[in-house]
């Protein structure tokens, strides 16, 4: 399953380059960035951006609602899969982990502590709320400035089409340094407003990891979880992004269904 996830991640990385290149060839089948993408007329937007625009302008364009329908439905059915299966930033972090391993550096991941995900969830929810308040005060939807997937895709368009970047680019090198040298998935776990907003749409009926209740307690799943959860007991936490690493790592799964995805 993890191989499959990698493939999907790379497929979602591709538009970063394909869209601007198609664009240069004057093919407009796919256009936009990960703030808002248009594939053959189907419009898909980042819910946080649209939320801000709605909230500030008191102005509802039908296309705005339609464009969040797809991400909302995906989250409602499959959970926050955008993060682990598609977000280019997450792919980069996966890459960093692998690179650190290759370079024989110690993993930055701290040992599992119970309920650490609650702290992380409060932090990112707080940042989203503070961000929305800030946006409300200044009246300009600026949260995209701290959304790595948005920045990555808009800057790649600019780089390829116009050969310049705009100021928000600066966040990327800073984050790269922080994530590579100082912390383990800091941005995704503690900050990212996009991820948080997607988490909020997840319900307990969405697809999630289910535990059969009995296993050999090897705790392999805890060791691999990138969100520092205990998949056996905490998989309903909004931090879980359904990456499925725990399921792939579980040795008992070979004998019987111990840890598996379940949707209602």
């Amino acid at each position: 399953m993890q191989k499959f996830r990698k493939v999907i991640q790379f497929i979602f990385l591709a538009p970063l380059f394909i869209v601007p290149i198609l664009n240069l060839l004057e093919i407009y089948f796919m256009k936009g960035t990960y703030i808002s993408l248009d594939v053959g007329g189907l419009s898909i937007s980042d819910p946080v951006s649209v939320l801000q625009a709605l909230f500030l302008s008191h102005h509802v364009a039908p296309i705005m609602l339609v464009s969040v329908a797809v991400p909302a439905l995906i989250v409602i059915f499959f959970g926050r899969v955008w993060c682990s299966w598609a977000c280019p930033y997450y792919l980069m972090l996966d890459g960093f982990e692998a690179l650190r391993k290759k370079l024989k550096l110690k993993s930055l991941k701290k040992p599992y502590k119970k309920d650490i995900h609650i702290k992380a969830n409060i932090s990112r929810l707080g940042i989203l709320i503070l961000g929305l308040i800030f946006v409300g005060i200044i009246g300009v939807p600026l949260l995209y400035l701290i959304s790595p997937p948005s920045i990555m895709s808009s800057q790649s368009v600019l780089l390829i089409k116009y050969a310049y970047v705009t100021a928000e680019f600066i966040l990327l090198p800073i984050l790269i340094i922080i994530e590579f040298f100082f912390g383990y998935r800091i941005w995704c776990r503690y900050v990212c407003p996009t991820g948080t907003c997607l988490s909020l749409m997840q319900t307990k009926f969405s697809m999630h990891v289910e535990y059969s209740g009995k296993c050999s307690n090897c705790n392999q799943c805890i060791r691999v979880c990138p969100m520092m959860l205990d998949p056996k007991t905490e998989s309903l936490s909004s931090a879980c992004n359904n990456c499925g690493e725990c399921i792939s790592a579980c040795p008992d799964n070979k004998k019987e269904k111990t840890l598996y995805f379940k949707s209602h």
Partner: peptide
């Protein structure tokens, strides 16, 4: 300024 979510679609188009 309130509506534009800075998606750069127009810039691309």
């Amino acid at each position: 300024m309130k509506l534009c979510i800075r998606c750069a679609r127009c810039v691309e188009a």
